[in-house]
């Protein structure tokens, strides 16, 4: 890729902006900061295009860059400024919530994922939303695969228990109706 230059990097980058922003939103909890993160990621990717390994996933490389900027620069500044953690549940609220059953379900899923601990939420995004293999998510998160597995298991157990609770309350309602 070293011979491709910034033009090709930019062309390729244009195809991933929305997904980068979504990842930035999950990390920062703020829409404006997510936008800034994507911008910084684009600048960094163009600067370092020679570091991209041919034959590997460009989007994963961009995710790694974005995460690195978040951890080492944006979050670090936020901590230095003494700012608190943004409530992810607020950040993931989507405007114009629909009234259909499908829309209600989708918003419920976002709320449930937002309520997970940060590390679990990020791992769920990479594996279950972005469709990454465990080893790919582990590489981006810079953790062992076992850590990815633990986070997913914890997230699934939490969500699974929520499901069981819903089923029980549904059964109780049905019983009352009867």
């Amino acid at each position: 890729m070293g011979t491709s230059g910034p033009e090709e990097v930019k062309t390729a980058l244009a195809g991933h902006l929305s997904r980068l922003w979504r990842y930035g939103l999950i990390l920062t909890g703020r829409r404006d900061e997510a936008e800034d993160l994507v911008q910084a990621t684009c600048v960094r990717a163009i600067e370092r295009e020679h570091q991209f390994q041919p034959g590997t996933r460009l989007d994963h490389w961009l995710f790694s860059i974005l995460r690195s900027i978040w951890l080492n620069e944006v979050r670090a500044q936020r901590i230095r400024r003494g700012e608190g953690i943004v409530d992810a549940e607020t950040a993931l609220v989507v405007d114009g919530a629909g009234q259909t059953e499908a829309a209600v379900l989708v918003h419920q899923v976002l709320r449930e994922v937002a309520a997970l601990p940060d590390a679990q939420r990020e791992t769920v995004l990479l594996v279950y939303v972005e469709g990454m293999a465990y080893r790919e998510a582990a590489a981006i998160l810079d953790v062992p695969i076992g850590t990815v597995m633990s986070r997913l298991a914890a997230a699934r157990a939490t969500l699974g228990k929520l499901n069981m609770g819903k089923e029980r309350s549904h059964d109780v309602r049905k019983g009352n109706d009867a």
Partner: peptide, 8 residues
């Protein structure tokens, strides 16, 4: 614990 994550 599975959800329609991608759709959401």
């Amino acid at each position: 614990g599975q959800r329609p994550f991608r759709e959401a």
